[in-house]
Amino acid sequence: MTTAVVICPGRGTYNAAELGYLAQHFPDADLLAIFDAQRAEAGQPTLSELDGAERFSMALHTRGDNASGLIFAASYGDFLSIDRSAIDVVAVTGNSMGWYTTLACGGALSAEHGFRVANTMGTLMQQALIGGQSIYPWMDDDWIANADRKQELLALIDEIAARENAELYLSIDLGGMLVVAGDEAGIKAFESAVEPVQGRFPMRLANHAAFHTPLQEPVAAKGRDALPGEMFGQPELPLIDGHGRIWWPGASDTQALYDYTLGQQVTQTYSLTRALTVAAREFAPDLFIIAGPGTTLGGAVAQSLITANWRGMASKADFRERQDKDPVLVSMGMVDQRANVFSYSQEV
């Protein structure tokens, strides 16, 4: 049986190309109705309404109070659709808000509670909308790790953060990218200091707040007020968090898991790079499966594996050669790759 680590994506992965993703792929109509009922009770448009819209709206679909629910449902539905008779899922991890989906996929939260956590936190983030995010690469086009360049950028973040009238932090360590977050002064200072590269970076992320920074402490506090710790239970699969820590089935402190999820996970740097390094070295899976929606996380996953020197990969060319010969990465947001892990018994 093929072993796999599943990766749940975060914000920014449900875009125009993903409109209709739930209608096409979500395998459990009754569960989707439960998610819709939660949204309707809160006075929010249902996922079915959003996903079934005639056209995609950046202003509507990428808002935190809408995007979080859409992405959670799409990712969780994809997890349910994996052929578990052929794929042995040995661990689950995620990027940023994908941690909430990870908790549900790994059994620490029920599907309904996982959706509640994701939808509540997305809504609270949107209501507060504190600060923003920008993304910038530290790897070159060939995905060759340049540790000196990464340290230069981290030093720049620290230097701007030390200024009197600016706040800036490393928000997400995302493979060959750094996501920085802070107030407008901090982000502008960073964007002005770095050289424009690849025709699109530095790139401001629309409708994104200063996730994974101390600026989000008020949101974390409201999350703890709104979400009871009793929802959290022992995971059924190992979970790898944004610090690279493993939460083991039968051996996890559920109060600590709650405290991390609505504390450090919200207010401290989230490292997908570290999570995937731990996943590769601790579980040595045959496959990394990225749940949908979207296809944008594949590069960051590959870059993280290159950073970890996993199976000797040190560049984009190494990764492509390995992927062509014996694929190590499957993105369920891509129809041709989805077929490699999809269970037809789960078809709606």
Results as ranks from 00 to 15, higher is better:
residue 190 F to I: 03
residue 250 G to Y: 12
residue 217 E to T: 11
residue 257 L to Q: 07
residue 17 A to P: 02
residue 200 R to S: 09
residue 11 R to A: 09
residue 4 A to G: 08
residue 196 P to A: 10
residue 236 E to T: 11
residue 10 G to T: 07
residue 131 G to V: 07
residue 258 Y to P: 06
residue 206 A to W: 00
residue 342 F to S: 03
residue 263 G to N: 10
residue 192 S to H: 09
residue 56 F to E: 00
residue 261 T to M: 12
residue 100 Y to M: 11
residue 79 F to Y: 15
residue 329 L to G: 09
residue 64 G to Y: 09
residue 74 A to Y: 14
residue 248 W to T: 01
residue 210 A to E: 09
residue 242 G to Q: 01
residue 214 P to N: 06
residue 165 N to G: 01
residue 74 A to G: 14
residue 330 V to T: 10
residue 332 M to N: 08
residue 236 E to H: 10
residue 340 N to K: 14
residue 296 T to V: 14
residue 53 A to P: 01
residue 184 E to V: 05
residue 111 A to K: 02
residue 214 P to W: 08
residue 343 S to W: 07
residue 132 G to M: 12
residue 279 A to F: 03
residue 221 A to D: 10
residue 115 F to G: 03
residue 117 V to H: 11
residue 338 R to Y: 13
residue 305 L to G: 01
residue 91 A to W: 03
residue 140 D to K: 08
residue 174 L to D: 11
residue 199 G to P: 04
residue 67 A to F: 07
residue 150 K to E: 15
residue 25 H to F: 14
residue 225 D to G: 05
residue 227 L to Q: 01
residue 244 G to W: 02
residue 167 E to T: 13
residue 163 R to I: 01
residue 82 I to R: 06
residue 133 Q to P: 04
residue 103 L to G: 04
residue 117 V to W: 08
residue 154 L to Q: 11
residue 178 L to Q: 03
residue 28 D to N: 15
residue 92 V to S: 06
residue 299 G to P: 02
residue 259 D to C: 03
residue 11 R to F: 02
residue 276 L to V: 04
residue 215 L to H: 01
residue 267 T to R: 14
residue 137 P to F: 07
residue 31 L to C: 02
residue 107 G to V: 13
residue 265 Q to N: 15
residue 234 Q to G: 01
residue 293 P to K: 09
residue 234 Q to I: 05
residue 221 A to M: 06
residue 305 L to P: 00
residue 196 P to F: 01
residue 135 I to K: 01
residue 298 G to D: 12
residue 302 A to I: 11
residue 23 A to E: 14
residue 163 R to G: 14
residue 186 G to R: 04
residue 26 F to G: 02
residue 56 F to R: 08
residue 230 E to G: 11
residue 313 M to W: 11
residue 31 L to W: 04
residue 317 A to P: 02
residue 297 L to H: 08
residue 229 G to W: 00
residue 224 R to W: 07
residue 211 F to R: 00
residue 274 R to G: 00
residue 337 Q to Y: 04
residue 319 F to R: 08
residue 163 R to M: 13
residue 31 L to P: 03
residue 195 E to H: 06
residue 136 Y to G: 06
residue 300 A to Y: 12
residue 31 L to Q: 13
residue 195 E to C: 01
residue 76 Y to H: 12
residue 333 G to S: 13
residue 32 L to Q: 04
residue 327 P to M: 03
residue 103 L to Y: 06
residue 303 Q to A: 13
residue 33 A to K: 09
residue 153 L to N: 12
residue 335 V to K: 13
residue 303 Q to V: 07
residue 55 R to M: 04
residue 343 S to E: 04
residue 159 E to L: 10
residue 91 A to Q: 09
residue 91 A to R: 12
residue 45 P to D: 09
residue 205 L to F: 05
residue 237 L to R: 11
residue 137 P to C: 03
residue 326 D to N: 13
residue 1 M to N: 06
residue 329 L to M: 14
residue 18 E to I: 03
residue 35 F to S: 00
residue 95 N to M: 14
residue 164 E to V: 07
residue 81 S to T: 15
residue 48 S to T: 15
residue 161 A to D: 14
residue 18 E to S: 12
